[in-house]
Amino acid sequence: MGIAVRAVESIGSKTLRALRATGPNARFVGDVLASGRDARTWLGQTMTQMRRLGVDSLPIAAFIALFTGIVLALLASYSFTGAVPLYFVGTLVEKTVTLELAPVLTGLALAGRVGANIAAELGTMRVTEQVDALETLGYDPVSFLVLPRVVAGVAMFPVVVGAAMLVAMVAGGTTSVLLLHLSSPEFLKGVRLFFQVFDVEYGLVKSASFGAAVTLAGSACGLRAGGGAVGVGRAATSTVVYSAICILVLDALWAVTWLLGREAAP
């Protein structure tokens, strides 16, 4: 009896803690949106953040996409051999890369790279009281530190994911031609068979939402960091975990809200 009561109490306390965290997080998102009015403050920082978050992330995204394309082509040929025409390798690579793998894998990679970077940077500024100094100088830390990163994330994640899509498709096509003895027109036929512009739109919009989630999580965890280097490290770790959770939940959410009931063929 006592154990059951304690279990129920544990569930209740965790639920309340999660609900209590919802409020500050929602307030933080509201502050970020509200700080958009101070364009002079955040606009100047945005391009720098776009380079750091986007352009500097291209190599890692391209690396992931390259191997994703290769492995996908090989997996597709392994699955289709003897049952389905081999040109469907192109179809599978195109659909999988554009709809799912390029956005999600790139998002997870950037969650580690970008999210942890933001959390560590802002956490260090918080524990070294640089954020307090900004406030003292009359700068809104959300407008000066958070919004440029969020805007850069929302703007550059689709670019990085788009580049990843191209790299993965090229890698898949090259693998099909070189290793699977599939001619490039056949691969292209498979790609064209069920290709829709919607596939690319869906992947890009999804990746923009991932960018927003990763930058918001990193900024929130970083600004709440405390307790020196340990706190900064904990903030970076939390950012990666929360970003990954947010990416997967958003992925499912987009699939349910946008893909469900939609026709696959053009």
Partner: peptide, 27 residues
Amino acid sequence: RRNNDALVGAVVVIVVVALVAAIAWVK
């Protein structure tokens, strides 16, 4: 700052153009 702007702008333009061209080619 100008260096950043050019680099980001170039990357965005290249990626967007490449994506649009690829879509147009596939379609």
